[in-house]
Design a protein around this nucleic acid. Structure first.
Length: 420
DNA sequence: TCTGGGGTCCTAGGACCC
DNA sequence: TCTGGGGTCCTAGGACCC
């Protein structure tokens, strides 16, 4: 059996933990730059705020209904996530952390000796008590069905006490007949459109479809999913692997026309990629830079380009990657446009310790020690104190974050103080 | 005025090999 | 008139996830 444990409205719940007076109040959390809604409390959902909504379009609704609006505080959410995952890992030796707010647990031979339903309630109680984050728990014989069970637990909290178990054919069929096809894990917008054209409306309908049609139209992934929903396990827990691509991309706080400002951003993004590369002990052999204007501004001239550079040698040095990224930027930058976003993506990794010596040109060997030192200093101070000359020396974060809450759990100066 | 960020996997088709 | 068969590797694009 598998369990899927999911934190309810995770970012909104994290903010609420530290401001209990916000219980029952509508809360939204905004994306970087305070742009879009990325998390909503149940009250906010009930008032009709869709996921991904541009914040400025809903400003009036927020004000009229006394919404509590937050900038995203990833340091807080990441730390809260770790606490939740730590507690969950006590309930099974087999755990897959699937995302910041979700984990699969696997139970081998538990059903004979355990009442999973009450075990689930115990999990819920432990996490709520230990972190203040509300969760839902779904049990089933496959991962895809556990996802379905979790949806039911979340949708009917009072009937299920937020824990649901699919352990019989009747329950499986009942659950699948209830679930609209577009809400199946792995069925997105395109696939659900296609399935509806075929007269498929529920997950149950989908499980009855011809396998050849499914494989032809939804690929092997769709076929696996169909099997999983029929109760035939095809997916096991996955173990974390090194990343194959690493990206650092940001929208700007305003439109940038000045080449120098964009160079600074791209240089900073390249350094961020290099730092992440070193964390997983990889070097990259290729790098992509992109820039584009604001797509939503139909009144302004549009421009969007990217370039992929094959590097002459594998590297994860801040200095070298920033240099290459700026070379790329130079090739694609065009004067006269108002740029809104840029990014650096590093690709084609090789392990740090098996760097092949190239014939003509190699990464500067001195950089290894230098980067090591930079990482140590920056880690110790907890911020990016050491920068390249091409980066902005004064500011660290060019982003609108007007409603940022304190780093309650990760900065000693920002922990909650109680005056007695 | 203001619209996020970071990933993965699969397939088809082209280039190339013997 | 008639022009083989069987592979691999790479890439772009499309789908999906949170």
């Amino acid at each position: 059996m598998f369990a899927l444990i999911d934190c309810n409205n995770f970012y909104a719940s994290c903010e609420r933990v530290f401001q209990p007076k916000l219980r029952k109040q509508p809360i939204v959390v905004l994306s970087n730059n305070d742009g879009c809604v990325v998390a909503r409390s149940n009250e906010a959902k009930a008032l009709g705020v869709p996921m991904g909504a541009p914040a400025f379009e809903f400003k009036e609704l927020f004000e009229k209904n006394n919404f509590h609006v937050f900038s995203s505080n990833y340091a807080l959410y990441g730390d809260m996530s770790n606490r939740v995952m730590n507690l969950l890992s006590n309930f099974s030796p087999d755990i897959e952390i699937y995302s910041i707010d979700e984990a699969f647990l696997k139970f081998k031979g538990f059903q004979e000796n355990f009442d999973l339903l009450s075990y689930g309630k115990q999990i819920k109680k432990t996490v709520t008590q230990g972190t203040g984050i509300p969760i839902s728990v779904g049990f089933a014989p496959t991962k895809a069905l556990a996802k379905v069970a979790n949806k039911i637990a979340k949708k009917f909290p009072s009937q299920t006490e937020s824990v649901h178990l699919i352990d019989s054919e009747e329950k499986r069929i009942k659950a699948l007949k209830w679930l609209p096809v577009e809400d199946i894990w792995g069925i997105g917008r395109q696939h659900s459109k296609r399935l509806k054209n075929e007269g498929i409306n529920t997950a149950y309908d989908f499980t009855l479809m011809n396998k050849f049609w499914v494989q032809k139209n939804l690929s092997i992934v769709g076929l696996r999913l169909q099997n999983e929903l029929q109760g035939i396990p095809c997916l096991d827990l996955e173990t974390p692997a090194d990343k194959k691509n690493i990206a650092t991309t940001r929208s700007f706080d305003a439109n940038y026309t000045d080449y120098e400002l964009i160079k600074e951003r791209v240089s900073t993004f390249a350094v961020a990629c290099a730092t992440k590369l070193r964390k997983q002990k990889s070097c990259c052999n290729a790098l992509m830079v992109f820039i584009h204007t604001n797509r939503h501004r139909k009144d302004l001239p549009q421009y969007s380009r990217n370039i992929v550079l094959k590097l002459p040698y594998p590297t994860n040095s801040n200095i070298e990657l920033a240099k290459f990224a700026l070379q790329g930027l130079d090739k694609i930058f065009k004067k006269g446009f108002a740029y809104k976003k840029a990014g650096v993506i590093v690709m084609d990794f090789t392990p740090e310790n098996t760097e092949q010596i190239m014939l003509f040109e190699n990464s500067n060997p001195k950089h290894k020690l230098l980067m090591n030192t930079i990482d140590k200093i920056n880690d110790a101070i907890g911020t990016t104190k050491i920068k390249l000359g091409s980066q902005d020396i004064k500011k660290t974060w060019k982003m609108r974050q007007e409603k940022l809450t304190p780093h309650y759990t990760t900065k000693i100066s920002e922990v909650i103080k109680i005056n007695c």
